[in-house]
Nucleic acid binder design. Structure first.
Lengths: 207, 207
DNA sequence: ACTTGATTTAACTAAATTGTTAAACTGGAA
DNA sequence: TTCCAGTTTAACAATTTAGTTAAATCAAGT
């Protein structure tokens, strides 16, 4: 019962195409026709595989959110010492976003338009998102008490880490022009940035 | 020749409504009907004042981009000493975004979908965006030579400043859930954040 | 009372878009 | 060869949306 384009090759092609189109244009501006063309098929077959635009979008969005958030939780809950943990977060985020440049603007834009989705995702993830900072906070308090880092609010630090790592991808077109870089140049800058951010944070935390 | 709703009150109401709807939903998802309702009028009157959706959007977008970028350039070119300049940037950005929370996600989303717009804006602004970092870089090199700050790439520092200040607004729904804050709580955290970021950066730059 | 410009109402056109359907085609499997 | 699931084609319905228009209404100024 194998097909001419064997097995689920087509389904995969559709999902990839949907991913690309939704991610680049957002839900509202994405057209089923765009996805069909990108996948090299026609609209009819799109509906043959996935009933509706909404259904497809939910699939893609779930996947994208997972990529965007999944790795982070594990690192946050790991047993690494604080500085290593921070380094791991930064490197993980930038590595992921170098592979998926339009991921954050897409996810964040859709979340801003439908903030309730965040709750659904949170439940799905098992742990409540407010727990994300729990361990991190405890570890920071210990270091502060030990005098190894300055008095710093963990929530504020966390926002700084995320902002430094993720924001340039969100503001990519602006950054490219201000720094006068093409895509390759931008990626190169972001690669260097892994070490840059980590050093920056460690210095900022020093007493 | 005064109208029942005197003078250009209606035009203003429409512009405000358009601003709100476009900013919250983005161009593609925004409906003329939404704008009309928000302005308390009907679609016909919308077209009576502004010919088309595109025309309205261009107006709003230009305004929004100006708010987003205009203040920054002046601060960057000012004669303030480096640390004061950094402080001014941070406070300016957070103050503006507290007044216009959905500004960055809107502008950045639309810029990502139409990066060429950035060039048009750049030309409009008079100075080329690549000049933004020129003076800042010179000042940093001087401080580095004088030994007052660590060796640091100005471009990297600039991205960090912007990221720390702007990103929480872009990721607002995520931040609110992780920090367990409502809108008021979020704003309070962002207010504190002005000082938090400035201190953080100054410590990070110390040799 | 008359005029005038803003505004509403309601209908309409035109286009785009999602989703459906039936019929034909295709290439490998039984 | 026959069968079958995947695929294409082409047409279609239903809905949404932008934009237009003509007539009626309204609120003020003259």
């Amino acid at each position: 019962m194998v097909n001419k384009k064997d097995d689920n090759q087509t389904e995969k092609a559709i999902l990839e195409a949907a991913d690309k189109v939704f991610t680049q244009k957002g839900f509202a501006a994405a057209r089923m026709e765009d996805i069909a063309q990108e996948a090299g098929i026609n609209r009819a077959l799109l509906h043959y595989y996935f009933r509706s635009k909404d259904k497809m979008f939910e699939l893609i969005f779930q996947q994208r959110v997972t990529i965007f958030f999944s790795g982070l939780g594990q690192i946050m809950q790991s047993e690494k010492p604080l500085f290593e943990k921070i380094q791991a977060i930064v490197e993980h985020e930038i590595t992921v976003l170098l592979a998926h440049p339009y991921l954050p603007i897409f996810v964040l834009q859709e979340l801003n338009q439908n903030p309730h989705r965040m709750l659904a995702i949170a439940e799905n993830a098992g742990a409540h998102p407010s727990l994300l900072l729990k361990k991190f906070s405890v570890e920071m308090r210990a270091e502060i008490k030990a005098g190894t880092i300055r008095q710093t609010d963990p929530a504020q630090l966390f926002m700084s880490i995320m902002g430094m790592a993720i924001y340039p991808f969100v503001a990519r077109p602006v950054v490219k022009i201000i720094l006068e870089k093409d895509d390759a140049g931008f990626e190169s800058v972001m690669s260097q940035r892994k070490k840059e951010i980590t050093d920056f944070i460690i210095h900022a935390l020093k007493p």
